[in-house]
C-alpha cells in the first residue's frame, strides 16, 4: 500500500478493479495543512484516461513491476524511442503515454520504464533533472507581487518559477515530483 501523496508519474495502482498508470501527478497544499493529489491516470487494459482528485492520506494498492533504466535516443513525430543500454533493446512510446515525463525529457535523458508482464506500461524520471534556462525576465521584473520567484522556461519548454537571481543560460536542478526549482546546478 502507498499513500496517494507519494504517487509519482510512472507509478501503477489498482483502482476499481483496473490497473492504472499515473501520467500526471500534482501535489497540492490547500488550506490548513491537508494536501490533495490531482492525478491523470491511464487504464493499462483499455487505454482510457481519467482525471481524479484524492486526499494525500488516501491509501492505495500499488502494483509490483519490473523497472529498467533506459535512455531517450530520438523522437520521430509523436513517437519517442528509448534504449536499454545493457540489452540494447529499444521501445517506442507515444507522447500521450509519457505524460509529464515530456516536461523534463532532453536528449540522452534517462527514463525509468516499468514493465508489466513484459509490456512497458509506465515511465518515470529520476528524482531530479538538470536543465538549462532558455528564457526568463531580469530579476526585478518578477517581483511586483512580492513573490521571490519569477517565471522561467527551460530547454524542454517547461515553465516554472525560479529565484530572481537565475538568468538565461543557467543550469538548474528541478524536482521532478513537484516540478519545482531546487537549486542552481
Amino acid at each position: 500500500m502507498i499513500f496517494a501523496g507519494e504517487l509519482k508519474v510512472g507509478y501503477v495502482i489498482k483502482y476499481n478493479g483496473g490497473l492504472y498508470t499515473i501520467q500526471k501527478a500534482k501535489y497540492n497544499w490547500s488550506g490548513r495543512n491537508e494536501a490533495t493529489m490531482t492525478v491523470k491516470m491511464k487504464n493499462i487494459e483499455n487505454a482510457s484516461t481519467i482525471d481524479i482528485v484524492m486526499k494525500g492520506s488516501e491509501k492505495l494498492e500499488d502494483v509490483q513491476l519490473d523497472h529498467r533504466d533506459m535512455k531517450f535516443i530520438y523522437a520521430s513525430g509523436d513517437s519517442y524511442a528509448f534504449m536499454d543500454e545493457e540489452s540494447y533493446e529499444q521501445i517506442e512510446v507515444f507522447a500521450d503515454d509519457l505524460g509529464d515525463v515530456l516536461n523534463f525529457l532532453k536528449e540522452d535523458g534517462r527514463v525509468i520504464v516499468s514493465f508489466y508482464e513484459s509490456r512497458p506500461v509506465a515511465y518515470a524520471l529520476p528524482k531530479t533533472v538538470t536543465l538549462e534556462v532558455t528564457y526568463t525576465e531580469p530579476g526585478e521584473k518578477g517581483d511586483s507581487s512580492g513573490n521571490p520567484l519569477k517565471p522561467a522556461k527551460v530547454e524542454t519548454g517547461y515553465e516554472l518559477g525560479v529565484p530572481l537571481f537565475v538568468n538565461i543560460g543557467d543550469k538548474i536542478v528541478i524536482d521532478t515530483k513537484t516540478g519545482e526549482y531546487l537549486s542552481r546546478a
Partner: peptide, 28 residues
C-alpha cells in the same frame, strides 16, 4: 476543499474524487 487563489486550483472543478469507501458518484 479550502479556498485558494492559486492557479493550480483553477481546473479542479467537478473532478471525480477518489475515496476507497465511497461507491457512488463523487465530485471535487
Amino acid at each position: 476543499d479550502y479556498f485558494t487563489p492559486e492557479l493550480w486550483a483553477k481546473d479542479i472543478k467537478a473532478l471525480p474524487l477518489m475515496h476507497q469507501g465511497l461507491r457512488i458518484k463523487t465530485l471535487f
